[in-house]
């Protein structure tokens, strides 16, 4: 599998990663080799095998509909890079 420049562009855009030139060229090679390694699974016969998302065949246990979480906004927003009047601020978004 050859990974092209445009593939890296697309992946970086999806994952919101900005790579410098060094990182980009390394990323191409690394990804090609990762994919080459992953290609080993193609040979396994999995016909009729249901994908396994969780190692235990458990099912959901539900939570009673109760308000249990207290919100200390000041404590949470003390962690934030930029807030104003209780809002988190980001550069202007145009919808």
């Amino acid at each position: 599998m050859t990974i092209l420049e445009k593939d890296i562009d697309k992946l970086c855009a999806l994952a919101r990663l900005g790579l410098d030139a060094d990182e980009r060229s390394a990323a191409r090679t690394d990804l090609e080799r990762m994919i080459a390694m992953a290609d080993a699974i193609a040979a396994v016969d999995t016909s009729g095998v249901v994908p396994l998302a969780h190692p235990l065949d458990a099912t959901a246990r539900l939570r009673a509909d109760e308000v249990t979480e207290a919100v200390d906004r000041d404590a949470f927003q003390a962690l934030a890079p930029l807030t104003h009047d209780g809002l988190y601020l980001v550069p202007r978004v145009i919808e």
Partner: peptide
């Protein structure tokens, strides 16, 4: 971390999901 994010993004993206992520989940069951 970036390497794994890129790999994971690749294996989940359109066109590769079945061959990698879903296939891996099947092999995982085996």
């Amino acid at each position: 971390v970036k390497r794994r994010i890129l790999t994971g993004t690749y294996t989940l993206s359109i066109g590769y999901f079945d061959a990698y992520y879903l296939k891996a989940q099947r092999v995982r069951r085996l």
